[in-house]
């Protein structure tokens, strides 16, 4: 909704000309929008856990399958290219701090990351893996898959909270 200041300190909605609100009314409406319903948080959690699952839960199957499929393809391509998944353990001192940002990015992939964690797939740090010519490509695909799923999760949350259509 694009708003512009109207006459007499009122905001006028460009799309619906008859909806004019005073500044205080508009502020209270915006404050009301800041409180998302509990269902939106549930959708957010589902969307993180199963890529695209939040949209499917909202009944938007096509969008959910497209977004979830995209994240899954990116993640699986990253694994196939020999990418490395990060976790908090295994390093000491300063190096453990360096693990935090990529771990958060990888963790965004939800169930895909958890399955790999349980199967210990992609977490090994063998020298032969790092010497693979596509190792860095794989890392990038895996990191970006998680970050994209965070974006998908926020989209599902906004849809569930009514902030987006």
């Amino acid at each position: 909704m694009r708003l512009r200041p109207g006459p007499g300190f009122a905001f006028v909605d460009k799309r619906g000309g008859n909806q004019s609100l005073t500044v205080k009314e508009r502020e209270s409406e915006l404050a009301g929008n800041m409180h998302a319903p509990a269902a939106a948080w549930l959708v957010g959690v589902v969307a993180w856990f199963v890529p695209g699952g939040g949209h499917i839960l909202l009944g938007n199957w096509r969008r959910g399958l497209l977004l979830g499929g995209t994240v899954a393809v990116m993640f699986l391509t990253g694994l196939k290219l020999g990418g490395h998944l990060f976790s908090f353990g295994g390093q000491e001192g300063f190096y453990s701090l360096l693990q935090i940002p990529p771990t958060i990015a990888n963790f965004g992939s939800g169930i895909l990351y958890l399955i790999c964690f349980l199967l210990n797939k992609g977490f090994s740090e063998g020298g032969d893996l790092a010497s693979s010519p596509t190792f860095e490509y794989g890392n990038t695909f895996l990191l970006v898959a998680g970050l994209l799923n965070y974006l998908v999760m926020l989209d599902a949350f906004d849809l569930a909270a009514g902030r987006k259509r």
Partner: peptide
């Protein structure tokens, strides 16, 4: 190309 295509899909849809 694959990377660009996948990211573009998510950016476009969201």
């Amino acid at each position: 190309m694959l990377f660009a295509a996948l990211v573009s899909v998510v950016f476009g849809v969201t």
